[in-house]
Structure formats: structure tokens, C-alpha cells
Write a protein that binds this DNA or RNA. Structure first.
Length: 564
RNA sequence: GCGCCCGUAGCUCAGUGGAUUAGAGCGUCUGACUACGGAUCAGAAGGCCGCAGGUUCGAAUCCUGCCGGGCGCGCCA
């Protein structure tokens, strides 16, 4: 998608290149192109609209003082000759920054582009259609979704949107861990609760899952399949409960995620992978490649060849595969499906697993860079100033559903996204419940709803904004108006940076900033006023703000209401 | 012991090479509509950016060491 800042950046870069070429510096630099010239937004207006520190960067290489380099470059730039649309004036400042002052045309162009692009504004083809598989949540199907899963869901879903908006071909996937021993524990727990419900004298073991949801599943089984169960022998009944409990849990997880607005392209079953012999196949390939050896009755993978601190067991001495073996097979399967890059969102407790898994892929001949793991830090829940304890075994946790019930989907998603993924997140439930109106998400949504309200007012007064192409934006002269446009101009860069840094929290902050600017503008200036031209221009500005707010909220997975 | 993450305002956190004033929200204090939605706005107070060195024209940001917190370090998943 076309965006004005890209044009400005190119103008500045080609101007600098021209200056470097005419001054003879370019020859000395060797491999150097316009892409090596950083163009930055300025923090202060006295520094112009954009600036480049290129003279400071090159000073060392050409062995001259930064300011002299800047003088030389600027002295050899000719804005008239180099024919630029936006640059009006160039200055050298501070230690050697080259500051660019643009005419107000660029700001007017920004608004025109936004109104023309609408929902497309902010999108780019930066990713060049790179195929990415983003796997996240992948919770064990042994309990309801909890708040940690909710954070992964919010971040993963948003990241998928952001990567897609920046030109990547993204597929989202949920890995169902339905082949491990914990499924047997789940089944057995439900079975024992079932026997209890029938009045049999059983002692519920410590290794069983204690949560009330286990009893719910047992009761459901009794209500629905009572006769069938009576006819089963112990072995059949065990199998039944394993499958029944698993499917109940999966349905519940899917329902919770759907309520949270998170959908996956693919639900991938570990058991099917194992049944299809994929793990066996991987072991065979690794054996052929000489990457494994036997010791102590087990089969070991030479992960130390790929930077691991010790080799890892892939086949246990009892003949079972380890979790690592299954995971290597799964990730090989992903790559075999034609993805260029695998991105996983894991909890910090899995960080020790990153290197072995990547080593497994390298042992199979894939590049280590094909697997990228984002370690999402935990969150702690606070309630009335005290930490809420969460333990699956003890059946104490706050579920995703409870979170949605208490603070709402939009607020929950915003709160879970607003922090850097590498930071611990403290989520105060009682505060979110009691003061939910102070949530930033309401502040942002209110700006959006407020603009819609302005348009309802305008329509009521017979003002129509159907022909946005003909708006004369030169009527916008207030400082706050220009500040808003600058903020709007930076939006495509913000999306691109969020994608590159895998940082949805950047956009959460951007949305808050933009909403704040608009609220400030609204309180100090009338959009609908006595001057028809100014009114139309401000309506155009408001529409641009509404468009960008809607776009950014969309990427975050939060609704943009027209009224609240 | 080793590895990863974190340490910034009373609290929760942005900022992760750029410009002699380090930002936001909450909390505290003072103000603002008989006009487009007061879920708003204007302003004030509040900082050895954990500590100490180093690299750089320039460090909250990069490197080293130390201190404090979290999480890992299994033939569990």
C-alpha cells in the first residue's frame, strides 16, 4: 500500500546519495546504498520533520568531523535540481544531524491517502508473501483454558494479524497434545469421579486432576452414556473415558477461544502424527544421517553438534519416544508443508526446549533459522492486593471464561497485549472489575465512538462527506491538527515495526497515543463550526483518525464501536 | 552452579544507540462545558533509568562484573 512517509524517506535518501556522490564521498564508501541511510522522526519541531544521523555514522569511515561531513553532504545537495516534492529546507544541527523541514503538502497528502485507502491503510508487502506458520496456545487438553493461555491467545492472534498486514502469508495452528501420559491421567480422573458418582467407594488419588470440571465430565458421561458404560469391562471403560474426556476438554477449549475471538486455521493432533508413524520416520532418518547413538539402553540425539549443552534422549530404554522426538517430528511436518518460517509462542518454562528442538531440525538438515520461538512471560493475577494462586493439580485457577466474564473480551485482550511479551504481566482482577471504565481500551474505543457521534451530528445538520477527494485540507492550521496528522503518518511504520519486532504492544501504545491526541483536539476545537470549509476539513481529519483507530484495533482483535 | 528473562515516578509499565526538559496510565492535588458524547480535557507534584566499570561523537538502550526478583536445567509433557 502506498504511504507518504515512504515517499518522504526516499526523497531524503536520494538527496543524501546525490550529495555524497557529488562530494566524492560515495566512491570511498564502497558497498553503500540509500537503504543504509537511516531516516528518523524528530522529537522536537525545532529539528524539522525528519532527520538523518548519517554524517555521524560516516564520520569515522571518512576520518572527518561529523559536522564537516554534514556540511559537505548538504553543500552538495541541490533541492531545486534534485527535484523533491516535499523537502523545503535542510539544516545541520547539533553534533551533525541533517534536519529536513517539509512543506505542509505532505501532511495533506497523508490525509488524502488515508481517506482513499481506508481499511488498507497501514498494510504493506514488506513480508513478500513469506509463508509463516504461527503456533500458539497449544495447551494440554487436561483442563479449561486459563489466563496464561489467554495471554498467549491474545498475543498470537494479534501477531498473526500484524504479520498478515505486513505482507506475510500466515497460518495459525494449535497443537493438540493428545498422545502423552497426561491424557491417561485425565481419563482415569474422570473415570474415578464417575465411579464415585455411582456411589462406589473409591479413594481419589493424589496424582489425579482435582478440579471440579473433572466431576462435570464424569456427570456428563453418566447422563449421556449410562447404559453403554454399564456394559463395558474395565479396559473398555478406561478407553472410553480417555476419549470422552479429551473430546469434552477440546470442545470446551475451542468454545473459550471462540468467545475470546481467537480462531485457528489448523488444529493439529499429536496422536494422529504418532499413529501415522511420523516419529518413527524421523528416528529412521536421524539414524541414517548418523545423528543418534545408543547408550544406557536408550537412543540419544547428538544435539551437542548444534550448540546444545548435552545430548538428548529420543527413544527411552523402555522403547517409548520422548516428548522431544515427537516435537521434532511435528516441526519437521510443519516444514514439509512448505512453510518458510515457523514461529512458536511458548511459555518461559519451555525455554530449555528451544535449543534441543532446533538442533533436531538441524540434524534433519533444515536451517536452524527456520524455527523462531517467542518466549511469552507468565502473568500473575492480583485480587484485592493479593496474588491469586493458580495450580492445575489443586484445581485452583482463573479460567479464560471467567476473565472474559469479569472484564469483557475487549478489555481483557487489550490488557493482555499492552505489555512487552518478555515482561511479566500483572493483571489486577479486582481493579479491572471495579474500575473497568478507567481501562485504556475504553479510552481508545471512546475516541472511535465519539467520531462516529460527530458524523451523526453532521448528518443531522445536512453536512455530507461523500466526496472526500475534494476536501481542502489547507484549512487545517492548528498545531494539534498537524500533530494528529503526523501521528497518522507514522502508522504504517508502526505496523511494520510491530511485525519485525513481534511486538503487538507497540500498536497498543500507538492506539492510546492517537486516541489521546484526538480527545485533546476535540476538547479545544469544534469540528462542526460556523466555517463550512473548516468543518469539512476537520470532518476529513476526524474520518482519517477513525479509520486508523479502526485499523489498529482490528489488528489487536478489539472491536471499534460506533456508540458505547 | 549453569542458562534465559526482568530491574525506569508511590504502583503497573512504555521507551532498547541519537539531540542539555526520560514518557504514559493508575493513585495524589488544582482547575474546565446552558455548543459536536464529562467513559473527556487543561495543569501540578513525583526519577542517582538496581550498582560499578567499559565501548562510542553520543548509553536507560551495547559489553563486563556485581546485587535483587522470576523461570528453567528429566529416559515428564
Amino acid at each position: 500500500m502506498y504511504n507518504v512517509v515512504d515517499d518522504v524517506r526516499r526523497e531524503i535518501q536520494s538527496g543524501i546519495i546525490a550529495g555524497l556522490a557529488r562530494s566524492g564521498i560515495l566512491e570511498v564508501l564502497g558497498d553503500f546504498s540509500d537503504r543504509d541511510i537511516p531516516v528518523e522522526y524528530t522529537r522536537e519541531k525545532a529539528h524539522g520533520d525528519f532527520a538523518t544521523p548519517i554524517a555521524l555514522i560516516l564520520a569515522g569511515k571518512v576520518k572527518k568531523k561529523p559536522r564537516d561531513v554534514a556540511e559537505t553532504i548538504v553543500g552538495n545537495m541541490d533541492i531545486e535540481k534534485d527535484k523533491t516534492r516535499y523537502i523545503q529546507h535542510v539544516e545541520i544541527a547539533g553534533p551533525g544531524f541533517i534536519n529536513f523541514f517539509l512543506g505542509r503538502e505532505w501532511l495533506e497528502d497523508v490525509l488524502k491517502v488515508i481517506l482513499k485507502s481506508g481499511a488498507q491503510y497501514g498494510r504493506s508487502d514488506m513480508g513478500h508473501g513469506r509463508k509463516i506458520l504461527l503456533e500458539f496456545v497449544s495447551a494440554n487438553p487436561t483442563g479449561p483454558m486459563n489466563v496464561v493461555n489467554a495471554r498467549a491467545a491474545a498475543v498470537g492472534a494479534s501477531l498473526a494479524n500484524i504479520l498478515e498486514a505486513s505482507g506475510h502469508d500466515v497460518s495459525t495452528e494449535y497443537y493438540i497434545n493428545d498422545a502423552g501420559g497426561q491424557i491417561n491421567v485425565l481419563g482415569a480422573s474422570c473415570e474415578l469421579r464417575y465411579l464415585e458418582l455411582k456411589g462406589e467407594d473409591v479413594e481419589f488419588p493424589e496424582w489425579g486432576y482435582q478440579g471440579a470440571y473433572i466431576v462435570d465430565i464424569a456427570r456428563l458421561a453418566m447422563d449421556k452414556h449410562s447404559k453403554k458404560l454399564e456394559a463395558m469391562d474395565a479396559e473398555k471403560r478406561g478407553e472410553f473415558f480417555r476419549d470422552f474426556a479429551l473430546s469434552c476438554m477440546l470442545e470446551e477449549q475451542k468454545a473459550s477461544l471462540a468467545r475470546f475471538g481467537v480462531e485457528f486455521d489448523v488444529w493439529f493432533s499429536e496422536r494422529k502424527l504418532v499413529d501415522a508413524g511420523a516419529v518413527q520416520e524421523v528416528i529412521e532418518i536421524l539414524t541414517q544421517r548418523g545423528m543418534v547413538y545408543e547408550a544406557d539402553g536408550a537412543l540419544w540425539l547428538r544435539t551437542t553438534e548444534f550448540g546444545d549443552e548435552k545430548d538428548r534422549v529420543v527413544v527411552k530404554s523402555d522403547g517409548d519416544y520422548t516428548y522431544l522426538a515427537g516435537d521434532i517430528a511435528y516441526h519437521r511436518n510443519k516444514l514439509e508443508r512448505g512453510f518458510d518460517l515457523l514461529i512458536n509462542i511458548w511459555g518461559p518454562d519451555h525455554h530449555g526446549h528451544v535449543i534441543p528442538t532446533r538442533a533436531g531440525l538441524e540434524a534433519l538438515g533444515y536451517p536452524g533459522s527456520s524455527l523462531e520461538v517467542l518466549l511469552l512471560q507468565f502473568l500473575s493475577l492480583m485480587s484485592r492486593g493479593e496474588r491469586v494462586k493458580m495450580s492445575k493439580r489443586a484445581g485452583e485457577f482463573v479460567t479464560m471464561d471467567e476473565l472474559i466474564d469479569e472484564v469483557g473480551k475487549d478489555a481483557a485482550r487489550y490488557f493482555l497485549l499492552m505489555r512487552n511479551i518478555e515482561s511479566h504481566l500483572e493483571f489486577d482482577l479486582s481493579l479491572a472489575k471495579e474500575h473497568s471504565q478507567a481501562n485504556p481500551v475504553y479510552y481508545i474505543q471512546y475516541a472511535h465512538a465519539r467520531i462516529s457521534s460527530i458524523f451523526r451530528q453532521a448528518e443531522g445538520r445536512g453536512i455530507n462527506l461523500s466526496d472526500t477527494g475534494g476536501i481542502d485540507f489547507s484549512n487545517l492550521t492548528e498545531e494539534i491538527e498537524l500533530d494528529i496528522i503526523r501521528k497518522l503518518a507514522s502508522y504504517p511504520d508502526e505496523v511494520a515495526m510491530s511485525a519485525i519486532e513481534r511486538a503487538p504492544n507497540r500498536l497498543a501504545g500507538y492506539a492510546l497515543d492517537l486516541a489521546g491526541l484526538f480527545h485533546s483536539f476535540y476538547n479545544s476545537h469544534r469540528v462542526i463550526n460556523e466555517d463550512p470549509d473548516l468543518t469539512v476539513a476537520r470532518l476529513g481529519l476526524s474520518e482519517a483518525v477513525r479509520t486508523v483507530l479502526a485499523n489498529v484495533l482490528g489488528l489487536l482483535g478489539i472491536s471499534a464501536p460506533h456508540e458505547m
